[in-house]
Design a protein around this nucleic acid. Structure first.
Lengths: 344, 344
DNA sequence: CTGTTAGCGCCTTCAA
DNA sequence: TTGAAGGCGCTAACAG
């Protein structure tokens, strides 16, 4: 069971441990080809793997970044984790992911764990409203937060990455207007977060610019409890129970923009239960482009967040500090599928 | 930036490093209460965190298990990762998750990485057909594989955990028969894996027992390329393009059991495009109970895999070897939703 | 080009 | 109840 160590390899290869170390760290110019070959062979023969803990203890750095998400059971964050893993791999770096379940205590605890592992930085997709604690982390390691917006409250040292929220809703409005809609609803939970406020702002500006009717429908009550506490089913339920109120809104909207896909899907189901057909009777558009948007019926038109590009940028910020801006907004991409059409 | 170390705490508390160590390892009986208090205070004042690498190097074990999944972007495996994280946390253990993208080379590489981190064991939800390599790992650390079935080919030392596949399809048949269906199709990709063969077997036995018509529809061709290479969209597309063939099957099935939910959802969409309504014109049942099954239209009847229980068992096998069986089958649970009804 | 050496931070006897 | 000391496996000078 006990793993072979660098000494064993050295002995077998008939060279010194430092040559093995050089070999492992790709300093090939420091040895003759045949030494190289012997080392290679010895390593394979023994099935030798360097011990990360020892290496880390010595060098002081772990090739590792930490990732915090609300829950991996939430499809959006599963995709994010996958993208971050891919991005980190480009830098020979591994990712340690923790689910926080949006629990502030747990968030604090796992950040401490991450620090104990010596991660090079922390990426969070689970930023709490209280950014003070996050800001405090920046004195320990670089911190990149997805989807929170810089404000006076949060320290300069938190790097932020977000989709351009105002652009997303504005593009949604433009798409709908181009289709001929003249009255559009924006459906959202209470816009507590700056992100949601940005989406609202983008919506209102685009509505004003197009000179059409815009309705804000706040979805904040649901009759059925969430079936999965961590999967963000709430938004689905919220959307579903908002369907009737959307139709009854003052401007008689013929289309709705949901704050995200999960909610859009819920709205769609609610609308169908009310007897409407999508997109014939009503158009629907989401934000995110989660996996199931394409597999939905009808396939959902949405504004895709460029997750991989955002993940790449996040990892870059951690591993090559100073290489990029502190705050960056990524443009969403309109994915036209079958949930939007001209109004009747 | 440099973290405080045990010496610093000792100095500040006015005690020796070993007392700090005793404190950290909960050997409180070895010191006076006031020493304890002083240490506690010093730790907090410094924001001290023990260095995992040093601890691991010294003790030889990392409180960590490794998890391999095809991709976290696949909702089922995101849920699995979440469940494993929860299970491991009960043992003060962390999880390092890697996506393999079903690439054998990558699978081998990440297993080696996991070993280098000194994980206590490896849980894989991404077992390749070639179990030899997996079996070879068992000499390095305990290995638990989800969803592969023990056979003569794979070594005794791979511990396996799986839902009872035969029971799942059998229960699905029984549910459908109770509803009045007399001709049922099982839709599956080619049943290369033992798991799928078991599902097929359970289906056939249940069909025979009920004395009704059973049809096997192999879905192996799709016209549209997968939209997400790692999200298992293939099964969705496969299901969708199989819809017509299901209806045309010899026995004129009035209901279908899909090999999993993803495929069931695809079949449902395909069927609807053909003008059928579910469950009025046709009943559909899946296996897994992924998140979106409940949020689908109509909500999908399915056989739930008890993921948390399975994850608990997997972690148990790793952390408390000998505590459980080597191979274990978990009973699926029938979740009746709205995609099944009596035939017309 | 290769070997020797001194720790990285912590844990754990062992002695005081 | 506390302190001193050795070493886990590896890396990076530095000396040969």
């Amino acid at each position: 069971m006990s793993e072979p160590k660098i000494q064993d390899v050295a002995r077998l290869a008939g060279v010194s441990p430092s040559s093995i170390s050089n070999f492992l760290n790709n300093r090939m110019e420091q040895m003759r080809p045949d030494t190289q070959r012997k080392i290679q062979q010895a390593i394979e023969q023994l099935g030798y793997r360097p011990n990360n803990a020892a290496r880390q203890l010595k060098t002081g750095v772990a090739k590792m970044v930490g990732l915090l998400v609300p829950s991996l059971a939430n499809q959006f964050f599963g995709s994010l984790a996958c993208a971050v893993e891919t991005a980190a791999a480009r830098h020979q770096c591994h990712v340690m992911t923790f689910s926080t379940f949006r629990d502030p205590d747990r968030e604090r605890a796992v950040m401490a764990d991450l620090l104990a592992y010596g991660v090079q930085g922390i990426i969070t997709g689970s930023a709490l409203n209280d950014t003070d604690h996050l800001a405090a982390m920046t004195s320990r390691c670089p911190v990149v937060a997805f989807d929170i917006k810089r404000s006076e409250d949060n320290h300069e040292r938190i790097m932020t990455i977000s989709v351009d929220n105002a652009a997303a809703t504005a593009m949604a409005v433009e798409h709908l207007v181009a289709l001929g809609h003249r009255s559009i609803a924006l459906v959202s939970p209470p816009p507590y977060t700056l992100n949601r406020q940005d989406r609202l702002k983008g919506f209102q500006q685009a509505i004003a610019q197009a000179g059409i009717a815009g309705e804000l429908v706040i979805a904040d009550a649901t009759d059925t409890p969430p079936s999965d506490p961590h999967g963000d089913t709430q938004l689905f339920e919220l959307g579903r129970s908002a369907a009737a109120r959307i139709l009854a809104a003052p401007g008689k909207p013929t289309a709705a923009i949901a704050i995200n896909d999960m909610m859009a899907i819920g709205i769609g189901v609610g609308l169908k239960q009310l007897g409407l057909r999508i997109p014939d009777d009503f158009s629907l558009i989401g934000i995110d482009d989660i996996f199931f948007s394409a597999a939905h019926d009808p396939p959902l038109t949405t504004l895709r967040q460029p997750i991989q590009a955002m993940a790449d940028a996040a990892v870059q910020r951690i591993l090559a500090p100073g290489a990029g801006q502190v705050a960056e907004l990524f443009p969403p991409e309109l994915i036209v599928r079958a949930s939007t059409a001209a109004p009747k």
